[in-house]
Amino acid sequence: MEMPLIETKNLKKYFKTGRGTLHAVDNVNFQIFKGQTLGVVGESGCGKSTLGRVMIRLLDATEGQVLFEGKNIMDYNKYQMNELRKEMQIIFQDPYASLNPRMSVSEIIAEPLKVCKVITNKKELEERVFDLMKTVGLAERLVNAYPHELDGGRRQRIGVARALALNPKFIVCDEPVSALDVSIQAQILNLMMDLQEQFGLTYMFITHDLSVVKHISTEIAVMYLGQCVEKAPADELFANPVHPYTKALLSAIPIPSLKYRNMQNILSGEVTSPIDPKPGCRFAARCPNAKPECTGCNLELKEISPNHFVSCVKYM
């Protein structure tokens, strides 16, 4: 079998807080193959962003492994890590906060190249910056502009150009379009898909917007309170959702029709606290089909049909 580009094994990230241990990412396992996109969806605070940061080791994992091309990067030392950073980059959610307001467009895009000493020749560096700007569709005349002078879409293009500067293989996209308005979202998404085709990039696409994720993903993982509750190829997940949380999420996609208004499956109740969660299904408190056996049992992802995994008592 082909080796996945990046793979997590029992990945855990806990934060110590005053009230206990916060389980931000709890036992997450998945694989992403070269050229594919894994969409990660879930509501705010379910650990999607933390997962993305642990994957490229901006945060260290509490337990578990991240294998990049088969090697566990959690064991890498500082120097190995610096080499590896060229292979994995990140695009941020807020294009206003992710660009240094004191640096011009060219300085921002050139920074990774300077830091990693990939290009030291000034003229080549300049050429590379113009090249990247062209790749992401930024007009050359903006080369000396400052981020605050540009609109959200252009800013996000700068973010994409910076991530591409080092020719990475894997990019974590942390809600790259949720801060943009809808017409710009489509532009950026198309740009990212074009780039994926052009450079054979592999994405982990974090979002809470299901219509976006359907558009771009090959596979989708649904997260709830730090755990992956369902994972399936994109079409399969939309056609045949199994986990009650996935069903609720899908039914929350607005349908532009008057007839289907009342078909929404609205969840009641609060999200359980991610601090020291009890064993068993973490969704049980809000699940419409919760049964007594949902609490206290040990849940694992189970393959119910080819490549469709779900973690629910019903299928244990």
């Binding site: 890590m81 950073r85 959610q93 906060a97 920074e111 500067a165």
Partner: peptide, 10 residues
């Protein structure tokens, strides 16, 4: 975020 972006390239 731009500090994190800087960290992401080492």
């Amino acid at each position: 975020d731009y500090i994190e972006a800087a960290r992401a390239c080492g």
